[in-house]
């Protein structure tokens, strides 16, 4: 009885060893393909401008790592790295885009505020009721717009202060949505102010033409 049990243990042991060797050989044979596939999968998460560089760089890094499991472990790291790098890139694009929008808005506000002042200080224009009403509307819109712009700038500043960790970058997505909504609101306001500004410019041009005809007559 003991002999039969012993024989079974021996046979199971040999079979297990053979299976382990076969599995290890299979993993070894498939390993280069898995490494290449993991790197391609990781690189596909990156922004287009970074893909070619990191595909080659990460292939080279994996080649320097000894052992098949070491290479697989490092490649799984590349997938995590690529996710984080993509979030960082998206984040900096949101921040840069909005910073540019805010700068453009500041310029447009300054120009429109100058137009409002010029019209109010020009006696022949300041007395015109139709123009005066539009100028008042524009002035009120400009004030609202400046308040919106300041709120957006504060939100952007707070969002930029969020640390650049993987978890924080994932949470940043919520802030980014709020910033984008603020940006959309600003665009609507900018469209209204521009439209009013255009109406004012048309009226001023007409008034100037009439004035020059009267003077030449």
């Amino acid at each position: 009885m003991a002999l039969i049990t012993g024989l079974w243990v021996f046979v199971v042991g040999v079979l297990t060893a053979v299976l382990a060797i076969t599995v290890a050989e299979e993993i070894g044979a498939w390993s280069p393909w898995v490494v290449r596939s993991l790197i391609k999968f990781a690189v596909a998460r990156l922004p287009q401008s970074q893909r070619e560089r990191f595909e080659e760089e990460w292939q080279s890094h994996a080649a320097e790592v000894p052992g098949k499991f070491g290479k697989l472990f490092v490649c799984m790291g590349f997938v995590i790295a690529a996710h984080n790098m993509a979030l960082i890139d998206r984040r900096s694009q949101v921040v840069e885009g909005l910073s540019r929008n805010l700068a453009q808005l500041d310029e447009s506000h300054a120009t429109l505020a100058m137009v409002v002042d010029l019209i109010r200080n020009e006696p022949t224009l300041a007395t015109r009721e139709d123009l005066s009403s539009l100028v008042n509307q524009l002035s009120s819109l400009l004030n609202e717009s400046r308040q919106l712009r300041d709120r957006l700038a504060t939100r952007l500043s707070s969002a930029s202060a969020i640390p650049q960790t993987l978890v924080a970058n994932l949470l940043y997505a919520t802030y980014a949505a709020a910033i984008r909504r603020g940006g959309d609101e600003m665009s609507k306001h900018a469209a209204e102010t521009n439209s009013l500004g255009a109406q004012i410019v048309t009226l001023v041009k007409e008034h100037t033409k009439r004035l020059s005809r009267v003077r030449s007559a």
Binding site: S60, H61, G77, M85
Partner: peptide
């Protein structure tokens, strides 16, 4: 140093190493 050499010397995993290197480069 290459990324692999930096990883070996610092014992920082690749998932953490490359985002830091990219930020330092930017």
């Amino acid at each position: 140093m290459s990324g692999a050499e930096i990883g070996r010397s610092t014992e920082i995993a690749s998932g953490t190493l490359y985002p830091i290197l990219l930020r330092l480069e930017s």
